[in-house]
């Protein structure tokens, strides 16, 4: 098995319009095991999406290094598939051609064209392979973009709030879908989310990040058997624990009274 991610002392700064520097990530150390499902959670501005983009190789770190299977990450690669909140399907291609894009781009479509239909079936879009993206609902489009990333057999799948734009019911269905795919493929998954429930429901480990300075506040192991129940007492206690961490380290002032 492959797909181990190592992040060592990564610092990322952004220049703002007024030439002020914003520290998007200050000294991140993180190790994600092969086949692990990890969620990055935290308020806006805590650098979780930035971290994901660095792992994808879309941006470079200012300090520190990132590795996949001991190899330094320098540029984007099909080994690290990426799914955004917006499905970003290519609107000029049908669902089939969207999914086939990676294989064609890597010039291995001829030998592997059976894979395309297989992954379309895997995400349950068998009847829509000839449709264009504008004909799909939000949930279907997100499934298609998942299939598009998976067809490359990435070692790691990076998910940037993949379910953020979906309604509550579609969202819960898609969460189960993600778990099913993850179990079936054993791909390492790293997901950015705003949703504490989603993070606990899906992940082996929830990484709680805080803004200013943008760093990892705590890593919380979720040792619950799958399938998980959202109303399990342990689930709820983890939930309040995470909420507590987020609450007390944010900008919210401590209450000025004592009981």
């Amino acid at each position: 098995m492959v797909g181990e991610i190592k992040v060592e002392g990564v610092v990322k700064r952004f220049q703002q319009q007024n030439a002020e520097e914003v520290i998007a990530l200050s000294g991140i150390d993180l190790r994600i095991e092969t086949g692990e499902f990890v969620s990055l959670i935290g308020p806006s501005g805590c650098g979780k999406s930035t971290l994901l983009r660095l792992i994808a190789g879309l941006n470079g770190a200012d300090e520190g290094k990132l590795y996949i299977d001991e190899e330094e990450i320098k540029k984007p690669s099909y080994e690290r598939g990426l799914v955004f909140q917006d499905p970003m399907l290519f609107p000029w291609l049908s669902v089939y051609d969207n999914v086939a894009f990676g294989l064609k781009a890597r010039n291995i479509y001829k030998a592997n064209h059976m894979e395309v239909q297989k992954f379309i079936d895997l995400v349950g879009l068998s009847d829509f392979s000839r449709s264009y993206p504008h004909q799909l609902s939000g949930g279907m489009a997100q499934r298609a973009s998942l299939a598009r990333a998976l067809v490359n057999h990435p070692k790691v799948l990076l998910l940037d709030e993949p379910l953020g734009a979906l309604d509550a019911f579609t969202r819960m269905n898609m969460q189960d879908e993600l778990i099913r795919i993850w179990k079936e493929r054993g791909t390492t998954m790293i997901m950015v989310t705003h949703d504490v429930d989603e993070a606990i429901y899906l992940s082996d480990r929830v990484i709680v990040m805080t803004p200013r300075p943008a760093k990892i506040e705590r890593c919380i192991e979720v040792q619950l058997a799958r399938p998980r129940a959202r109303n399990n007492p342990e689930f709820l206690s983890l939930r309040s624990k995470i909420l507590e961490i987020l609450h007390f380290t944010g900008t919210v002032a401590e209450p000025n009274y004592y009981l």
Binding site: A56, G57, L58, K75, P76, S77, Y78, R80, G81, L82, F84, D86, M88, F90, P91, W92, L93, F101, G102, K104, A105, R106, R148, A149, N152, L158
Partner: peptide, 26 residues
């Protein structure tokens, strides 16, 4: 949208593939 190029680069598309299969059709 730049995200189209970003997505295609994480799907394994090289520079020229991105130009002619993403930029031009878009």
């Amino acid at each position: 949208r730049n995200a189209y190029f970003e997505v295609s680069s994480t799907l394994g598309a090289g520079k020229y593939y991105q130009i002619f299969m993403v930029g031009v059709p878009a």
